[in-house]
Write a protein that binds this DNA or RNA. Structure first.
Length: 485
RNA sequence: GCCCCCGUAGCUCAGUGGAUAGAGCGACGGUUUCCUAAACCGUAGGUCGCAGGUUCGAUCCCUGCCGGGGGUACCA
C-alpha cells in the first residue's frame, strides 16, 4: 500500500489517566481509540509521536497526601500499596466533597468529615504545597509515583499499548509560571477576582483560568505549556487530543488561547480535540456499579479472558495444548473488549454492557479472528506455499462470492484514508466486519482445496490475501490474531 | 440563561443528499458424510422524535418545537 504523498508529523495525546485513581472502564476509550489512531496514522506513512500526558500532579495528590497524613493504614500500604492509595483517594474525596448523600452511605467518611470540617480546604492546601516544592509532600509524591506507575504499566502491557513519551503534568510544572507570566506580560491574560484568566468571549463570558487565587495552576495552564513545549521540540503538523467530549469547551478555549498567544510554529498546526462519548451505565448515567464504584479495568480484562477460555474449551480443539489455549483466550478476550469500544461511533455515548463487551459471536473481534484462523487452517491443511501465491497471476472471479470478496478487499486503502479524515476507527471495524462476512460467505459456498487446478490456485490466493488484510486491519486496531481458535 | 451533543427495529448501536434504511443481540425456521457451526442461509420486526423549509430528491442540510444528556471562573 502506498504511503501518503505528504507525510506529516502528528502528535497523538491519549490515555492520560490520572495516576493514583483506580483505572476503570471509562479509561478504556481514550486508550484504545488513541492507540488505534496512532497505529493507523503510522501505517499510512505519517511520523507519529504518542505521548501519555499522565495526570500525575493534580488535586488527587492533595487528597492522597491529606489521607496519608490523617488516616493511612501502614500495614495495608506495605501489603498492597496500590490498593491503599486507592482507598485513601476514594475516602478523602468523599470527605473533601462532603456531599450529604455520600457521607450518609459511608460512616467512615462521615466520621472524618465531622472530625475535620476543613478537609476540603486542607486538601487544596496540600496540593498547593506540593506545587510549591514543599520537601515533605515532594518526598511522598516520589514515593507514591512508582506505585502508581506499576499499576498502570501492568494494564498497558496486557492491552499491548505503548507510548513514545510519558510527559505528564509534573514534567511541565517548571514551565507553568513562565507560561502565565508570558500571557500576562503580553496582555492576553489578566487578573480577576484574585485569579488569572484569559477572557476570550469578553468580560461576561467565563474566562479560561490559568492560575487560581491561591496561586495553584490549572489544567489549562499545563495544556498551554504542553502545546508550547511540543511546538518547540517536535514541530508537529497536527496534534490529536483523544479526550472525553465533555471537555470540548475546555479545548476550544485552550486552542483559541494558544493561537492568540502566537506561539512560534502555531500557525500551521492543526489542533484537534478527538472527543469521544461517555460510557454509561444501564440507567443512562455515567457508568457506575450498584455499589457506586466503577468496574475496574483489570477485572474486566480478566473476565473477558476467562469467558474466551471457556469458549476455547467448548470448541473442542483437542489438538491444542494448554499454553496455546491460554494464549488464544488472552488474544480473543482482550480483542473482544477493544473491539467493542472501537466499533462504536467515537462521538456518541454508549451504554456499557458487560455481556455485550465480552461477547464472542456476531460483530466482534472474534469474528475476524475466526476468519483468519480459517485461512490458516486451509493453508496448513493444504501445505500451501503462500509466497508462491503472491507472484503475479490472474485471480479468477467467476463466482459471485469471489467477486464480492475481491470488491471488499480493494477498499482497504480508501477506508484508512476515511479513518484519518474523521479520526474514526469504527469505519475500519465496519469494513473489516463486512470483509470477514464476505469471506465467511465465500468459505461456506465454495471449496478451495478441493477445487480444480487454476480455480484452486486462484481461491488460495484470495484466502491468503484476505487473511493478510484481516490480520493487518486488526493489528491497526491493536487486536491480535491466532493460527487456530 | 447561554453553548454543545443525542433522539434510527423489542434491546444495544451502525449508516447515507439519491435506489427495497443496516448489523449484533433477542424471536422464529433451516444448514455439519464437505477446507474450523466462534460459521452460513432464510423469516418476522422501523411513518429514521414532531412540524415546517431548502432540493429534482431529505433519515441525512436549515429553522422551530418536544424529549434526553453534557458543559458553563478557581476539578481534571
Amino acid at each position: 500500500m502506498a504511503p501518503v504523498a505528504k507525510p506529516l508529523t502528528i502528535v497523538v495525546d491519549f490515555s492520560s489517566p490520572n495516576v493514583a485513581k483506580p483505572m476503570h472502564v471509562g479509561h478504556i476509550r481514550s486508550t484504545v481509540i488513541g492507540d488505534a489512531l496512532a497505529r493507523i496514522l503510522r501505517f499510512r506513512g505519517h511520523t507519529v509521536i504518542t505521548d501519555n500526558h499522565l495526570g500525575d500532579w493534580g488535586t488527587q495528590f492533595g487528597m492522597i497526601l491529606w489521607g496519608w497524613k490523617h488516616c493511612r493504614d501502614d500495614a495495608a500500604f506495605a501489603a498492597d500499596p496500590t490498593a491503599e492509595l486507592g482507598r485513601l483517594y476514594r475516602l478523602v474525596r468523599k470527605v473533601a466533597d462532603a456531599k450529604p448523600e455520600e457521607l450518609a452511605a459511608d460512616p467512615e467518611a462521615a466520621a472524618l468529615a465531622a472530625k475535620y470540617p476543613g478537609a476540603g480546604r486542607e486538601v487544596l492546601a496540600e496540593t498547593a504545597k506540593l506545587h510549591e516544592g514543599d520537601p515533605e509532600n515532594r518526598a511522598l509524591w516520589e514515593q507514591f509515583m512508582p506505585v502508581c506507575r506499576a499499576e498502570i504499566d501492568r494494564l498497558y502491557a496486557r492491552l499491548h499499548v505503548s507510548f513514545d513519551h510519558w510527559l505528564g503534568e509534573s514534567f511541565f510544572q517548571p514551565l507553568l509560571a513562565p507560561t502565565v507570566d508570558d500571557l500576562v506580560g503580553r496582555g492576553i491574560a489578566k487578573e480577576s477576582r484574585g485569579a488569572i484568566g484569559v477572557f476570550l468571549g469578553g468580560e461576561d463570558a467565563p474566562p479560561l483560568l490559568i492560575r487560581k487565587a491561591d496561586g495553584a495552576f490549572l489544567y489549562a495552564t499545563t495544556d498551554l505549556a504542553t502545546i508550547r513545549w511540543r511546538l518547540e521540540h517536535w514541530r508537529p503538523d497536527r496534534i490529536l487530543y483523544v479526550v472525553d467530549h465533555r471537555q470540548s469547551g475546555h479545548f476550544e478555549q485552550v486552542f483559541a488561547t494558544a493561537r492568540l498567544s502566537g506561539l512560534p510554529g502555531i500557525e500551521g498546526v492543526e489542533l484537534v480535540h478527538v472527543g469521544f462519548g461517555t460510557v454509561l451505565g444501564e440507567d443512562g448515567r455515567p457508568f457506575k456499579t450498584r455499589a457506586g464504584d466503577t468496574v475496574g479495568l483489570e477485572a474486566l480484562l480478566d473476565e473477558g479472558v476467562e469467558r474466551a477460555a471457556k469458549v476455547v474449551a467448548e470448541a473442542g480443539r483437542g489438538e491444542m495444548d494448554e499454553a496455546t489455549r491460554r494464549q488464544v483466550a488472552e488474544t480473543v478476550g482482550i480483542g473482544a473488549i477493544k473491539y467493542a469500544d472501537l466499533s462504536q461511533n467515537r462521538t456518541t455515548d454508549y451504554v456499557f454492557s458487560f455481556d455485550k463487551m465480552l461477547q464472542l459471536t456476531g460483530n466482534t473481534a472474534a469474528y475476524m479472528q475466526y476468519a483468519v484462523a480459517r485461512v490458516e487452517g486451509i493453508c496448513a491443511k493444504g501445505s500451501v506455499d503462500r509466497s508462491a501465491l503472491r507472484t503475479a497471476r490472474p485471480v479468477l472471479l467467476a463466482a459471485p462470492q469471489e467477486r464480492a470478496l475481491a470488491l471488499g478487499l480493494v477498499r482497504f486503502a480508501e477506508v484508512l484514508e476515511d479513518v484519518e479524515g474523521d479520526n474514526r476507527p469504527n469505519l475500519l471495524t465496519a469494513w473489516l466486519y463486512d470483509l470477514a462476512g464476505r469471506y465467511s460467505t465465500f468459505y461456506d459456498a465454495l471449496p478451495v482445496l478441493k477445487a480444480e487446478g487454476d480455480t484452486c490456485a486462484s481461491r488460495l490466493a484470495l484466502c491468503d490475501l484476505t487473511g493478510r488484510v484481516l490480520r493487518q486491519g486488526l493489528d491497526l486496531l491493536g487486536i491480535g490474531t491466532v493460527e487456530r481458535m
